[in-house]
Simulated assay, not measured.
Amino acid sequence: MLAMAYLLSATKLKSYAQCPRAYYYRYEYGLKQPSVFGAAVLGTALHVTLAQLYQDWHYQEPLPSEEWLRYCWENQIGALTVAQVEEGWQILWRYFETEIVPLGVMQRPLATEGRIQGLTQVNGLEFRLTGRYDRLDSLEDGLELIDYKSAKNPTMPATDMVDLQLGLYSLALEQRYGKLLRRMSLLFLRTGERVTYEVTYEHRRQVETVIGELVLRLLDEEDWQPRCGEQCGQCAYARYCSAVDAEPEPLPEVQRKSRKLQLCFSL
């Protein structure tokens, strides 16, 4: 049977970099992580509206009208309360006035609501790189990835997570578009704040290093050593970990899927 490439995302890489043993419990052994977040209905409606705003506009005029923005929004409000509809419209109108109108013309993005996919080979193993973006813009010298943030109390992502995201996305997007990812911008829809990160070669090198370390543990399944730190206090798997508890609970039985790694050979 043909083995598939090993799936990697920025979230998985961050989990591994934070603690190899927690990574093993979740992604290799198969323990489920409890979910604490419900569906963000308003956030989803805002994301889809902005995707349609850019994707379906005819671009025969410099700027879309308020009527076009409202049309896109009203296509998404079926599951919202009256209060959410009003709140969502205020968020979108602020975005329109701060992100589009001042430019004088709405630029057509390269893609919206897309999936990042790429392949990389490290130490004879093939990895499939995955991720998502809300918008991808063309720059004179490369690409800019746009990520909308719609939560009421958003937190800035940790620096290590951003670094791994930038490196992984840079590798995958260059394969797909033949252009370098130059920056990633987070747009906080409720406040209008924009936070931009510049992409450097160091981000790619860091991701390649972390993947290389992961490869060694995938080939030697006995060496998933814990990495203790502040994260241990919130770890969903702490009760199974000997580094946290001198007498940890035994791992529950789970139905594990056989893992197949794609070996790559140079001919």
Score class of each variant (00 low, 15 high):
residue 191 T to G: 03
residue 170 S to M: 05
residue 211 I to L: 06
residue 209 T to P: 11
residue 228 C to M: 10
residue 209 T to V: 15
residue 219 L to F: 08
residue 207 V to D: 01
residue 214 L to C: 08
residue 166 L to A: 15
residue 193 E to Q: 04
residue 198 E to M: 10
residue 221 E to S: 12
residue 181 L to P: 02
residue 167 G to Q: 02
residue 193 E to V: 11
residue 214 L to K: 01
residue 201 Y to Q: 14
residue 220 D to H: 07
residue 174 E to D: 14
residue 222 E to D: 11
residue 177 Y to H: 04
residue 170 S to Y: 01
residue 217 R to S: 11
residue 174 E to I: 14
residue 179 K to R: 06
residue 223 D to I: 08
residue 203 H to F: 09
residue 208 E to M: 09
residue 228 C to T: 13
residue 220 D to F: 08
residue 182 R to N: 02
residue 216 L to D: 14
residue 227 R to H: 09
residue 207 V to A: 03
residue 185 S to K: 05
residue 228 C to G: 11
residue 169 Y to V: 08
residue 228 C to I: 10
residue 219 L to T: 12
residue 193 E to Y: 02
residue 215 V to G: 05
residue 220 D to C: 10
residue 220 D to G: 10
residue 218 L to D: 10
residue 165 Q to W: 10
residue 228 C to S: 12
residue 196 T to L: 03
residue 197 Y to C: 13
residue 188 F to P: 09
residue 203 H to C: 12
residue 216 L to W: 07
residue 182 R to E: 07
residue 217 R to V: 13
residue 192 G to F: 01
residue 193 E to I: 11
residue 174 E to C: 15
residue 189 L to M: 08
residue 200 T to N: 07
residue 183 R to D: 15
residue 227 R to F: 04
residue 189 L to V: 02
residue 217 R to K: 07
residue 168 L to K: 01
residue 200 T to H: 11
residue 180 L to T: 13
residue 221 E to I: 05
residue 201 Y to I: 13
residue 210 V to I: 15
residue 170 S to G: 14
residue 184 M to V: 15
residue 220 D to L: 09
residue 202 E to M: 10
residue 225 Q to K: 07
residue 214 L to F: 03
residue 222 E to A: 08
residue 199 V to G: 00
residue 222 E to C: 05
residue 198 E to R: 03
residue 188 F to M: 07
residue 227 R to W: 09
residue 202 E to R: 03
residue 221 E to K: 05
residue 224 W to T: 13
residue 182 R to I: 07
residue 173 L to D: 03
residue 227 R to L: 12
residue 226 P to Y: 03
residue 212 G to H: 00
residue 190 R to A: 13
residue 192 G to M: 03
residue 179 K to T: 00
residue 171 L to M: 07
residue 192 G to S: 07
residue 216 L to N: 08
residue 168 L to V: 06
residue 201 Y to H: 13
residue 187 L to E: 13
residue 207 V to Q: 06
residue 186 L to K: 00
residue 186 L to W: 04
residue 191 T to A: 02
residue 197 Y to L: 12
residue 212 G to L: 05
residue 204 R to G: 14
residue 200 T to L: 11
residue 165 Q to I: 13
residue 171 L to N: 00
residue 190 R to D: 06
residue 180 L to G: 09
residue 169 Y to S: 12
residue 225 Q to C: 06
residue 209 T to S: 14
residue 222 E to K: 04
residue 185 S to W: 01
residue 202 E to C: 08
residue 170 S to T: 08
residue 219 L to C: 13
residue 207 V to H: 03
residue 196 T to Y: 04
residue 223 D to P: 00
residue 185 S to P: 01
residue 168 L to S: 05
residue 186 L to S: 08
residue 191 T to W: 00
residue 206 Q to I: 12
residue 194 R to C: 00
residue 209 T to W: 08
residue 168 L to I: 09
residue 200 T to M: 04
residue 221 E to N: 07
residue 173 L to N: 00
residue 215 V to N: 03
residue 196 T to G: 07
residue 186 L to G: 04
residue 202 E to F: 08
residue 184 M to L: 15
residue 196 T to W: 01
residue 218 L to T: 10
residue 204 R to C: 14
residue 211 I to E: 09
residue 196 T to I: 11
residue 182 R to D: 02
residue 178 G to K: 01
